[in-house]
Amino acid sequence: MSAQAVDVDNVVMQFGGLRAVDGVSLRVGVGERRVLLGPNGAGKTTLFNMIGGQLQPTSGAVRLFGQDVSRQNPYRRAHDGLARTFQITSLFPDMTVGENLHLAVRALSASRFGMIRPASQYPRIAERVADVLAEWRFPAGADTLVSNLSYGDQRKLELAMAVANRPRILLLDEPTSGLSATETESVVGLIKGLPEDVTVIVVEHDMDVAFAVADLFTILHNGRLVTTGTAAEVQANEDIQRIYFGEGE
């Protein structure tokens, strides 16, 4: 049996008296597109943080491509091919778009500890940054300070930085939150346009987006995994209707 891209094995995350994640197991195959669903406080972001390494599970294990990374730092996981975006936009606000991308592209290059040659004089990195800029097109220009960028473009940059190093696993935490309909559509297009062997896990509230980008859906509720199924199964399941879509709707 080939190893799963992401194998979350019975993880628990305890914050003081609160169990944010309570014994969740999740296996996502190579190249699979998975959406995590669940109401606020279901433990989706906490689970993401354990996969990304921002949090270490209280118990249980996280494996990437069969390798146990439960106690590994986030930066080591990045070198293993994992990239992510954050729910709350997480950029370098006092740097330009180009500088943000430079930092992203250089993160996995050997030159990241270089201390003598100016950062701007690494042709291969500059080339890759130019490629990403051409592909993603920021109308404000590469020299715009990120803090002066529109919210939609900040979300886009967040995504561009995550894919800049061609990750094997991509975690996207609410990539379309706060975006307009057109912007959401373009983000959906970008996710669908990712190479087929990239494993993508998305936390998403917008059901249209969720159904557009993924085939399998995992529902979390109160820190536990409720079920995993296809769009039809999710829509048919009454428990899920009650938990997630709410009785009021």
């Binding site: 990045a78 993160a107 270089g114 201390m115």
Partner: peptide, 24 residues
């Protein structure tokens, strides 16, 4: 002005993101 110096600025502004990108 080197990549090292640029990384320090990145850490100053957002160390969590730097770690997630792959910087120690």
């Amino acid at each position: 002005r080197s990549p090292f110096g640029e990384a320090l600025r990145g850490i100053h502004q957002n160390s969590d993101r730097m770690a997630a990108l792959g910087y120690n």
